[in-house]
Design a protein around this nucleic acid. Sequence first.
DNA 1: TAATAACCTCGCAA
DNA 2: ATTGCGAGGTTAT
Length: 297
Amino acid sequence: MSEGLSETFVLPFVLPFDGPLDLPSTLASGQCFRWRVDDSGAWTGVVGRDIVRLARTPDGVAIESAPTPPAELAEHMVAYLRLDDDLPAIQERIGADERMREGIDRYPGLRLLRQEPWETLAAFILSSTSNIPRIARTVELIADTFGERLTLGGTTRNTFPTPEALAEAGEERLRALGCGFRAPYLAQAAAAVADGTLPLDELRGARYADVLAALTALHGVGDKIADCAMLFSLERLEAFPADRWVRRVLVDWYGLPPNVSYEGTRTWAQERFGSDAGYANQYLFWNVRQASRKRVA
DNA sequence: TAATAACCTCGCAA
DNA sequence: ATTGCGAGGTTAT
């Protein structure tokens, strides 16, 4: 213990990966709300009951985490980052048209994530008529208030609270955290998951129509929010959450009628892209968002 | 079946 | 600085 290398210097664990992976686009593209980048380019977030720090390396992804050590968490991070998806093959299939091809080529390492269903549903309930900075702020505030504390190095974050904890918290305390008119929606969803009315774990991988029906049975969850939860956490990659941005793209680039119904966008996307519709959505969404930000800046 | 207002706050732009 | 607008939707009418 007395030799030169102190125990404070720990070689980072590196998850080997040689495929396309653009951490900034993937973690900031609006599908998740808890990742923060630091000056070194590393990303810190909370995944399940662990605080995690990620950085791209030439050989893969460097991982620090606690309380689960990186080596034990690695397999789960492969799943979380969907490194098991054959992204080049997906891009080959959906990149048939010029617009999509350009969008893919601009962000070739943009991946979907495989997130935790309850947290994802809750976050997108909060997304209604809101914006990404505000959603992120509210999610963080809810975690800080009702979640459990985690520490990694000098960084402290909280888990996203369980459905039981948010059901217990109740509408009024959620409203006090800035949830606004979404507070009763979130409280009711928490209660439904907590008491088994909405069995999220059983819905993972179930038929699209069945998952959609189960989710939209909740007050405050319509087609769009259900599609987000399905795509980002319930393994329904054919989901196509058409928000106002994606709709604009469909109208401007693909000639869909401006008054196309949500069902119309869903049918269009699923006929065109099949089970790759979700990836197609993500490329369209991120491209149009980035383009609009550049125009402002 | 299709259109329209209301809903809570907050972030961001003048 | 203070004000005003609109935001990754859903529901009720």
